[in-house]
C-alpha cells in the first residue's frame, strides 16, 4: 500500500509535472487564464492519464518494443477522443473554453512521458496511482497558476469578486504575454530556492539549463534527445 502512496507523493510534490519537471507547458500557459479552466483542464488530463497508464500497463507485455510509440499514441488518442465527446456532451461550457487544447492532450509530454518511463515497466495498480499522482500534481499546478492570473488580472477567483472595486486589474496577466511572465517568475523562484539550498550546502551549482529541454526529465521528448546530441558538439 505504501508504494501506491509513494507514487501519489511523487506526482504531487517531489516530481510535480508543472513546477519541477516543466512538462506540458503549452496547455499550462494557454489554459490558465482563469482558475476554472485550470481545474477543468487538469482534471481532464488526470482522467486521460489514469486511463492510458492503466491500459498501457495492462498491455505492456504484449506490445512489441519496435512499435511501442505508435501503440501508445493510438491508445492515448483513443481515450482523448472519448473524453472529448463526453465533455462536449456533458460540460459544453468547459469544452468551449478549452477548445483546441483538449485534442492536443494527445501530444502532452506528461502522458507519453509517464507511459514511457513508468507505465510500460510497472503493474496496473501502481501505474494507476502514478497517473493519479501526476495528474493531481498537474491539476494543482494549473489551478494555482490560474488562480494567480485570474486574481491579479481580473480581481476574481472562480468568478467571485475578491479584490476591492478600487483595484485596477493587471489585464496583461490574463493575456498571452502574461502567461510567459508568470511562468518565467515561477521558474526563477524555483531557481532561487535551488541556488540558496546549494549555497547553504556549499555545492557549486549553476541554474543555467543547457537548453530549456535538456534538463527535462521527459525522456520521450525528442527536444531533449536533440539537446543531448547537441551539447556534445557545442
Amino acid at each position: 500500500m505504501s508504494k501506491a502512496i509513494e507514487r501519489l507523493k511523487c506526482g504531487i510534490i517531489t516530481e510535480n509535472p508543472t513546477f519541477v519537471q516543466m512538462l506540458g507547458m503549452c496547455p499550462t500557459m494557454a489554459v490558465t487564464t482563469s482558475a476554472v479552466n485550470g481545474i477543468g483542464m487538469g482534471l481532464t488530463t488526470t482522467v486521460i492519464l489514469i486511463l492510458s497508464n492503466m491500459m498501457i500497463s495492462a498491455l505492456r507485455k504484449v506490445i512489441p518494443d519496435k512499435v511501442r510509440i505508435p501503440a501508445y499514441i493510438v491508445i492515448v488518442a483513443s481515450f482523448v477522443t472519448i473524453v472529448q465527446f463526453l465533455l462536449q456532451g456533458f460540460v459544453p461550457s468547459l469544452y468551449d473554453s478549452l477548445g483546441i487544447y483538449i485534442p492536443l492532450i494527445v501530444v502532452n509530454c506528461i502522458i507519453l512521458g509517464r507511459a514511457e518511463s513508468y507505465a510500460s515497466k510497472n503493474n496496473v495498480w501502481l501505474s494507476m496511482f502514478d497517473g493519479i499522482g501526476m495528474g493531481l500534481g498537474f491539476t494543482i499546478g494549473l489551478t494555482s497558476i490560474g488562480i494567480f492570473r485570474e486574481l491579479f488580472g481580473n480581481g476574481t477567483i472562480f468568478g467571485f469578486q475578491i479584490m476591492p472595486s478600487q483595484y485596477e486589474p493587471v489585464t496583461i496577466l490574463i493575456l498571452a504575454p502574461g502567461a510567459f511572465f508568470v511562468l518565467a517568475c515561477l521558474i526563477a523562484i524555483q531557481n532561487k530556492v535551488r541556488l540558496n539550498k546549494a549555497k547553504k550546502e556549499g555545492i557549486p551549482v549553476s541554474c543555467e539549463k543547457e537548453n530549456g529541454c535538456a534538463g527535462c526529465t521527459n525522456t520521450l521528448c525528442s527536444g531533449r534527445q536533440f539537446a543531448e546530441q547537441n551539447s556534445e558538439t557545442k
Binding site: 493575456l175 498571452a176 504575454p177 510567459f180 518565467a184 517568475c185 526563477a188 531557481n191 541556488l195 530549456g212
Partner: peptide, 23 residues
C-alpha cells in the same frame, strides 16, 4: 542577467515581450 533568471526564465520573459509586440 540575475542569477535565478538565467536560462529558461529570461527566455520566457523575452517571449512575453515579443508577444506584446505582436499584439
Amino acid at each position: 542577467i540575475p542569477e535565478s533568471f538565467k536560462g529558461t526564465p529570461i527566455v520566457l520573459v523575452t517571449a512575453g515581450l515579443m508577444a506584446m509586440a505582436f499584439f
